[in-house]
């Protein structure tokens, strides 16, 4: 049995411990553990089918976990009275009755939570949906408008915690920056935010802390600054197989990076010497520092993808 963490343990709002979800023989979520702090935006990054949505559905009590548990403020989601007023959840902006108007969808949520109807107007204004747009049926909404509606719905009950699955999906660049300032301000007021994305760029723009997930397993987590400081070397040669052989014979482990080069934990000096002694002409040799999360993301996900042959785009 689990020993629950003390409620409201300083600095931690969301605790996920050993979460596992198995479908038949397939582990969609594999022993996932992480924490989210108030005052920070935590980004949940991973390719499609990595287990992000399943993890978030388990957190909101929609999917039963096979093992482990997720607690918010030390409490299981099911035990939170009127949870919409404490946790704002957006799991899929397209999961709406196409025949309802945007305003009606917010009205139903407000009625369920027992909120004054003025909250509906406030939230529509906050997400920049005009009164005319709010009276249209969701069938006629663009994905970006559905996302805005979904965010309005999540914020309706004035919660202290937000769980958002792919909220930036379908937003234009201006919309993504709008969301960044919205969530930044929210976190600055002490709110806790967990948002997922399969696009590194979105996470880089919005999140302070990053959890990277691939094939159901967490492959990296830390602050954005920590994850950006990837020590090591990026190297590229005209003859890549000769370079790989040279590094291997010099005892240097290297792995393919996203853009046709190799990444190694060794220093640029060691890599350069190994290439020189093998007579391999280099095209590029530099510290991997500042290469950005992109390379790490690609590397990490390609790592996990090589270990298990899982079809690309396996749906969670």
């Amino acid at each position: 049995m689990f020993v629950p963490l003390p409620a409201g343990r300083l600095g931690v709002m969301i605790t996920v411990e050993g979460l596992t979800k198995t479908y038949g023989g397939f582990k969609a979520v594999d022993n996932v553990s992480f924490e989210c702090r108030p005052g920070a935006v935590t980004g949940f990054l991973g390719p499609n089918g990595a287990g992000k949505s399943t993890t978030m559905r388990i957190m909101a009590g929609l999917t039963p976990a096979s093992a482990g548990e997720a607690r918010v403020g030390g409490v299981l989601y099911q035990d939170i009275p009127n949870p919409g007023t404490q946790i704002g959840v957006l799991l899929d902006a397209s999961a709406q009755h196409a025949g309802r108007t945007g305003r009606e969808i917010l009205t139903l949520s407000a009625l369920t939570m027992g909120l004054p109807m003025s909250r509906v107007d406030d939230m529509l204004k906050l997400v920049s949906l005009t009164p005319e747009e709010s009276k249209r049926r969701v069938r006629n909404y663009s994905l970006g408008m559905r996302q805005r509606l979904g965010i309005a719905n999540a914020l309706l009950g004035d919660p202290k915690i937000l769980i958002l699955d792919e909220p930036a999906n379908g937003l234009d660049p201006a919309g993504i920056h709008w969301m960044r300032s919205l969530l930044r301000e929210y976190a600055n007021r002490g709110g806790t935010v967990l948002l997922s994305s399969h696009l590194l760029h979105e996470i880089e723009v919005i999140a302070d802390e990053i959890i990277v997930i691939g094939n159901g397993r967490i492959v990296a987590q830390g602050t954005k600054a920590e994850l950006l400081q990837t020590a090591g070397t990026f190297v590229k040669a005209g003859d890549m197989s000769a370079l790989a052989n040279a590094l291997t014979s010099a005892g240097i482990t290297a792995s393919p990076s996203g853009d046709g080069g190799l990444r190694s934990e060794a220093t640029p000096e060691q890599v350069g010497k190994a290439a020189a002694s093998a007579g391999v002409a280099l095209v590029e040799l530099r510290p991997a520092e500042g290469a950005g999360l992109e390379e790490m993301f690609l590397e990490l996900t390609s790592d996990t993808q090589r270990e298990e042959i899982t079809p690309e785009g396996a749906q969670s």
């Binding site: 108030p38 009275p81 007023t85 202290k160």
Partner: peptide
Amino acid sequence: MSTAVATIDTTRPAIP
């Protein structure tokens, strides 16, 4: 962050 971080309130009335 102070120790007065907002947490989950389990004493709120449930939805009737």
